[in-house]
Design a protein around this nucleic acid. Structure first.
Length: 257
DNA sequence: ATGCATGTTCCCGG
DNA sequence: TCCGGGAACATGCA
């Protein structure tokens, strides 16, 4: 359940560990989500140098020498694990073997993690890159529920169910608000909250993880957290479904319809 | 033991 | 055309 902040941290850790290393071997255990044949993927990437790892939306982008790019989406339950000698991790999807026996694997018990060779550049802006003007225009033209809009990857990339709740809680706007009905002042607040909530989480997770790729899931959530009954203010945390997903919010969050 | 969690896609209906 | 709702995916956890 890696979300945007986790992925940003993973990208940084992978860069530290494998940047400028040669990918000696790429094992594909579960090829069903690949956009190319296993052999095509291997011949494109094996022998290449990993030049950078970046996050884009909810994906990681591995940039290899020779203009080769691999996109990776972990979907619901995908995880990254560092490889230890001679042991294939349980639920392995693919394994990246670099020099000196070092490497990492993608694991996913749902087998839904998706690797894409030469992914198309996404049209929608990333949640951490969108400008205030573009965000304002986006919110103004959509008549859907604000939480649904924040999570719509075709509109804005990178925000999932739990951080959508965290952002709207931080901005004090009800997740049930109609996007186009939200006043400019509050749209500005949401825009700022996206930046603050995500970047704060990145810092906290980076600190907690160190160089651990997966690490245990630290719970930094202030509202999207099943263990909490009330917020730090003492407001009762309510639960509802939006888009089939559990949504946590309080009565104090302003509703605009 | 039952049901919930999580992202995406696809299908149906208003 | 836009929007919402539900199912499906496989497994671990409370």
């Amino acid at each position: 359940m890696a979300e945007l902040p986790d992925l940003t941290v993973f990208a940084n850790i992978l860069s530290r560990m494998f940047k400028n290393k040669v990918l000696e071997k790429l094992d594909v255990t579960v090829p069903k989500k690949l956009n190319v044949k296993v052999q095509e993927l291997q011949s494109a990437l094996e022998g290449c140098i990993l030049e950078s790892v970046e996050r884009a939306g909810k994906t990681l982008q591995f940039h290899f020498s020779g203009e080769n790019v691999l996109g990776l989406h972990l979907m619901l339950r995908g995880e990254l694990v560092e490889l230890s000698e001679d042991k294939t991790p349980k639920f392995q999807i693919m394994a990246f073997h670099f020099e000196k026996g070092k490497g990492f694997a993608v694991i996913d018990m749902l087998k839904q993690a998706t690797a894409t060779l030469h992914p198309l550049k996404a049209a929608a802006p990333d949640a951490l890159e969108i400008t205030k003007e573009d965000f304002t225009a986006l919110v103004a033209k959509k008549h859907t529920i604000i939480k649904t809009l924040l999570m719509d990857q075709k509109s804005l990339r990178g925000i999932g169910n739990s951080y959508a709740d965290e952002i709207l809680y931080h901005a004090c706007v009800s997740p049930f608000s109609t996007a186009s009905a939200i006043p400019q002042w509050d749209v500005d607040k949401i825009f700022k909250s996206i930046d603050i909530v995500l970047n704060t989480a990145i810092k906290e997770i980076a600190l907690a993880n160190g160089n651990e790729l997966a690490g245990e899931l630290k719970d930094f959530m202030k509202i999207h957290n099943a263990a909490l009954k009330v917020t730090s203010n003492g407001d009762v945390i309510k639960r509802d479904k939006i888009g089939g997903r559990t949504t946590y919010y309080t009565q104090a969050q302003q509703l605009f319809l």
